Computed example of a mutant assay.
Amino acid sequence: MQSYNEKYDEFKYEIITETEDGKLKQIYWNIAFGLQEVDNLKPSEYMIDLAIENIHGKKSYNDVESEISAYYDKKPEINKNLNEQEADIVSVRLVQLLSDKSFRFDYNTYRIYHKYLFDGLDIGISKKYIGNFRDYNISKSEPVLNGATVAYTNHLLIKDTLEYDFNEEKCYDYLNKSTDEIISHIATFTSNIWQVHPFGEGNTRTTALFIQKYIQYLGLGEMNNEIFKDNSRYFRNALVRANFRDISKGVYEDNNYLYKFFSNLLIETNYELNEEELFITKNEVSL
């Protein structure tokens, strides 16, 4: 018979510790490094060495972040590679959040993820916009659109638009939906919140993190997360194509590319994710 103390101990919270599964850690690091390529960033050799030590259980995530932060703090400003610094710091923070099972579905979490990933970094915008919605309008010349831009949400409408998208998603019932319907729906929701582009920079990486956490939270099964490692640029350009139209040239929003990506992610189909297919020809779009 259990003693009172033994029974009581069964109801205590357990501290969640970092996984010791090296293979799982390798996946997280692959995703994190792969996502940096969205902005043409690559981690430093030192960061890769620290990641390997983490995978082999020699250093914790906190150890890695402390050491990489100290590494850049000691460097004279003139010798700092800001692109590598961003890739390194954001990568370890992505890994920490991917490994954490906690999640809350709301647009404030989306905003907080942006703050956590980019806090203290020079990503080309004022520090006041890290973790805060932009108060200015933006455009971006896209190679896949021959220099045209997606029509991003007006800054005055960001909060209301995200609130609407998140409320609509909360009301969506995944029960008794076919696999095809679920994939299409996840792709559309991802496309919608990305199109808002609430932040001055770092939108795609923040969206990719949020969606992976959300899918995990929904319990839709094991994701083939390696897709993000090798196809992060495809992911971003598929989002671009899902949110661009030029009716005068017969070009409309196309979710097919994003559907292929999420199908490979969620049910491990073998769609070829060919970036060349995402490009429209010069005579298809007015600049």
Rank of each mutant, 00 (worst) to 15 (best):
L209W: 00
A32V: 04
I15Q: 06
E45W: 08
K25D: 01
Y113P: 03
V240C: 12
S286V: 11
Y214F: 04
E84N: 01
A187Y: 02
K115W: 04
L117M: 09
Y4P: 05
L220W: 10
S184A: 14
A208W: 02
D119E: 10
F166P: 02
E53S: 12
R205I: 11
L239I: 05
Y71F: 15
M1K: 12
Y214C: 07
Y46M: 05
D180K: 04
Y72Q: 03
M223H: 10
E222I: 12
Y271Q: 09
I215S: 04
E272L: 10
G221H: 00
R93Q: 11
N137S: 12
E67N: 09
K140C: 13
P198G: 00
E284S: 13
I182K: 02
K282S: 15
L278P: 05
D106W: 02
K177P: 03
E222F: 02
N243V: 07
D160G: 09
K42S: 06
I280S: 00
R93N: 12
Q36I: 04
D254F: 06
D173I: 14
L209Y: 04
I130G: 06
V90D: 05
E275I: 02
V150P: 07
Y234A: 05
T19I: 04
N132Y: 01
F244L: 07
K140R: 15
N231T: 09
I89V: 08
Y113S: 00
